[in-house]
């Protein structure tokens, strides 16, 4: 049941326990308890809304920053990663394979603000060897949701 609940919520976090109960042929109480457990165990980390900020009229700049790091003994990359993700400007941090070690997503109001953050805060951190910043120009698809396209049902109405 947990797997099914997660599948439903990952598509639409607003699906009510009552509706999920019907979909899975369970009682509403069973679903509520299962969701509680998933939250307690940290399987469900939170509920967010996918927003097209450009459409919402909010000026915002996002940048993907690749960071090359010298790992420290015992803690590897975790220590530097922690120093990076503590910043509120940082939306995501991933350890990645390849030429660079960390991929950091930073959000700011202006390009200048983001550039300043990288130069002043990120690049100067101990253990950070180099950075490469790519500004996000356009979002086509976010978390499985395609931006800009309206889905049309073009099937024959009766077949």
């Amino acid at each position: 049941m947990e797997k099914q609940i997660l599948a439903i919520l990952s598509k639409d976090a607003r699906t009510s326990p009552e509706k999920i109960a019907v979909m899975l042929d369970k009682t509403e109480q069973e679903v509520i308890e299962a969701i509680d457990k998933l939250e307690q165990r940290g399987v469900i980390r939170g509920y967010r809304t996918i927003i097209d900020w450009e459409k919402a009229g909010r000026e915002q700049v996002n940048a993907l920053i690749d960071v090359r790091v010298s790992p420290s003994r015992g803690v590897g990359f975790d220590d530097v990663a922690r120093r990076i993700y503590k910043f509120g400007e940082v939306k995501s941090v991933y350890l990645v394979s390849g030429e660079y070690d960390l991929r950091v997503v930073v959000e700011g109001k202006t390009m200048h603000e983001v550039a300043f953050f990288v130069a002043e805060k990120l690049a100067t951190l101990e253990g950070v060897l180099s950075t490469r910043t790519s500004f996000l120009l356009k979002t086509y698809k976010e978390d499985g949701v395609v931006y800009g396209e309206k889905e049309v049902d073009d099937r024959l109405p009766v077949s």
Partner: peptide, 10 residues
């Protein structure tokens, strides 16, 4: 029309 008359996947 809301069609429940279709005979194929959406």
């Amino acid at each position: 029309v809301i069609s429940l008359g279709v005979g194929e996947p959406d």
